[in-house]
Simulated scan of single mutants.
Amino acid sequence: MTTIKDGEYTATIYKLIKDGQYVEAIHILNGQLQKHTKSRAALSLLGYCYYHIQDFTNSAECYEQLTQLHPEVEEYKVYYAQSLYKAGAYPEATKASFVLDNPSSHIKMIKLQACIKYCEEDYSAAKSLLEQLPQEDPDYVYNTGCLLYQDGKYEEACKKFTSALQVLGYVPALSYNIALCFYSVKNYAQALKYIGEIIERGIREHPELSVGMTTEGIDVHSVGNTLVLHHTALIEAFNLKAAIEYQLKNSKGSQEALTDMPPRSEEELDPVTLHNQALLNMDTKPSEGFEKLAFLLQQPSFPPVTFGNLLLLYCKHEYFDLAADVLAENAHLTYKFLTPYMYEFLDALLTCQTAPEEAFRKFDEMNGKLTEQLRKLAKQVPY
């Protein structure tokens, strides 16, 4: 890294960054930029700090300025494109990635574009891009596993993740993906084995993340959404553990999994954690739960089950008018997030409030379809 002209700040900033105190470093660096608006060192360090607290929008702004001030530095173009991708600005990230089409950054460009297409749910394009990579590249194996998982081929995906793990060594995100594969085939024991390893390593290697402190009743401050926290995969692991305990009807274990995770303030919570908190606290705090689920539905991305869960919970609590409003206002989400059976069930249930006879007819039709499916399945069972 380059040094800042004002020497009085240099030692302090580097110490703050070394100690992971990025927010404090950002405050000082912003003051520095007010004096030297085109300071390469200040912008570079500021982009680095923003990236490490996962404020990717501000990180991208810093690197964008650097690409304009120093177009000869390839790293700034890479960091700019990566920051845009992390910020969810996929069209802008794709545009920025094309600038990287040179021998030194070509592979990085392909990998980044593949990730963007995956996040945009253009899986065929992501696959085509991945096929341009060497098949021995661990990232090729890893990302191919992601595509297989998305296609519902969980056992094949698990093999790819395991293969990548053998090459790369322990990577929390890979262990989490393996656990997710086992969860998807309902092999909860194996899933919990990998989750346990993620949590144990996280506690041992990062005591500063205060795992389990909240459950023990200790008052701790937010650890923030740092890149260190992201790399540990602790949040993902605890959410998956909560989901498994929920499936196993262990309400207490599910609650503890959420409170055991590193503490963060509510505005720092990721969509999955927010969804799970709403779902698990619905019996005791229904108003807060509905508020969180409705909030998530207004965000650019949210857990796919959010839409269906909000509708079902409104119906469970007999808020049928609210359920009808949500369904009408979000018709574009119906085919994406509701199965035909779920839609037919909700439609019949809501119809029951105004036209009971019509609702009875709809339920009767559903019953007929299910009966026919059971007959077909029964014929397939060997005697």
Rank of each mutant, 00 (worst) to 15 (best):
Cys181Glu: 06
Tyr183Asp: 04
Tyr183Gly: 05
Tyr183His: 11
Ser184Leu: 15
Ser184Asn: 15
Val185Gln: 11
Val185Met: 10
Lys186Ile: 11
Lys186Ala: 10
Lys186Met: 08
Lys186Val: 08
Lys186Tyr: 11
Asn187Lys: 07
Asn187Arg: 07
Tyr188Phe: 05
Ala191Glu: 01
Ala191Met: 00
Tyr194Val: 00
Ile195Phe: 03
Ile195Gly: 02
Gly196Phe: 01
Ile198Leu: 07
Ile199Tyr: 00
Glu200Ile: 06
Gly202Pro: 12
Ile203Met: 11
Ile203Pro: 03
Ile203Tyr: 10
Ile203His: 07
His206Leu: 07
Pro207Asn: 07
Pro207Gly: 03
Glu208Arg: 10
Leu209Gln: 05
Ser210Glu: 07
Val211Thr: 01
Val211Trp: 01
Met213His: 09
Thr214Ile: 13
Thr215Pro: 13
Gly217Tyr: 06
Ile218Leu: 12
Asp219Arg: 11
Asp219Ile: 06
Val223Glu: 04
Asn225Pro: 08
Val228Cys: 11
Val228Met: 14
Leu229Ala: 07
Leu229Tyr: 06
Leu229Asn: 01
His230Gly: 14
His231Ala: 14
Thr232Leu: 06
Thr232Ile: 04
Ala233Thr: 12
Ala233Leu: 14
Glu236Thr: 14
Phe238Ser: 03
Leu240Pro: 03
Ala242Arg: 02
Ile244Gln: 09
Tyr246Ile: 15
Tyr246Asp: 14
Gln247Gly: 14
Gln247Lys: 14
Leu248Asp: 13
Lys249Asn: 15
Asn250Lys: 10
Lys252Trp: 15
Ser254Asp: 04
Ser254Val: 05
Gln255Phe: 14
Gln255Thr: 13
Gln255Glu: 14
Glu256Asp: 13
Glu256Ile: 06
Ala257Asp: 01
Leu258Thr: 04
Leu258Trp: 05
Thr259Met: 05
Met261Gly: 02
Pro263Cys: 08
Ser265Arg: 13
Ser265Glu: 15
Glu266Val: 12
Leu269Ile: 10
Asp270Asn: 01
Pro271Cys: 02
Val272Arg: 02
Val272Lys: 00
Val272Ala: 05
Thr273His: 03
His275Gly: 04
Gln277Thr: 08
Gln277Asp: 06
Leu280Tyr: 11
Asn281Arg: 07
Asn281Ile: 06
Asn281Gln: 09
Asn281Leu: 11
Asn281Met: 12
Asn281Cys: 13
Met282Leu: 10
Met282Asp: 09
